[in-house]
């Protein structure tokens, strides 16, 4: 309920970033989460990935020269849930139900990011998730701030206040996240 894992096939062409907000638009409500990690490797664990390509050859060139590789690798993303939209109402809280199995995961729009972040309230479920370490939380704040456009500064101030409230017992963590948020 607090997190889910999803397979992602466009690792090389459109990689998701750490802290990026994703959405599953299926099920009882739209479920939003933040990328906390990704793991890539062979789809079949009995087939190890061996070095390919010539010295100096870029990864993209190796991929292009070996068209089967991309189809044999799988990227698994771990996503910490940070909110949901139920009947047009955005709530920075855990959804009542987990997203459906096999549902497609997409990047959230800028408007959705700002709505879910709700002036920093999305940090409540995020900070409660052990997978969302300081780097993830900071990346998520930066991501929403960028999406806010002209509202970037007000959002950063609101998120900072929310962080201070939530982490009043953990000043060192607060400092660590705030430093990581700074451009």
């Amino acid at each position: 309920m607090r997190a889910f894992e999803c397979a992602y096939s466009r690792y090389t062409s459109e990689p998701f970033a750490l802290g990026q907000m994703l959405v599953v638009r299926e099920g009882r409500c739209d479920t939003f989460g933040v990328v906390t990690g990704s793991e890539s490797g062979p789809d079949d664990p009995s087939r190890p990935l061996v070095p390919r390509g010539d010295p100096g050859q870029s990864a993209a060139a190796v991929m292009a020269d070996n068209p089967e590789i991309e189809m044999l690798l799988r990227t698994t993303l771990t996503v910490a849930i940070c909110g949901h939209i139920d009947r047009e109402v955005a709530r920075p809280a855990l959804p009542p139900m987990p997203p459906p199995l096999l549902a497609e995961v997409q990047a959230a729009t800028d408007e959705e990011k700002v709505r879910i972040a709700d002036e920093g309230r999305f940090l409540v479920p995020l900070l409660a998730n052990p997978a969302a370490d300081d780097a993830v939380v900071a990346a998520a704040i930066r991501e929403v701030a960028r999406a806010a456009g002209p509202g970037e500064r007000p959002f950063l101030v609101a998120a900072g206040k929310e962080l201070a409230r939530l982490l009043k017992a953990e000043p060192s963590r607060l400092t660590s996240i705030l430093r990581a948020v700074e451009p």
Partner: peptide, 13 residues
């Protein structure tokens, strides 16, 4: 396995 090398064909496994 359909593997294109320098040909505009979609690979497939």
């Amino acid at each position: 396995a359909l593997l294109p090398y320098g040909v505009p064909v979609e690979p497939s496994l």
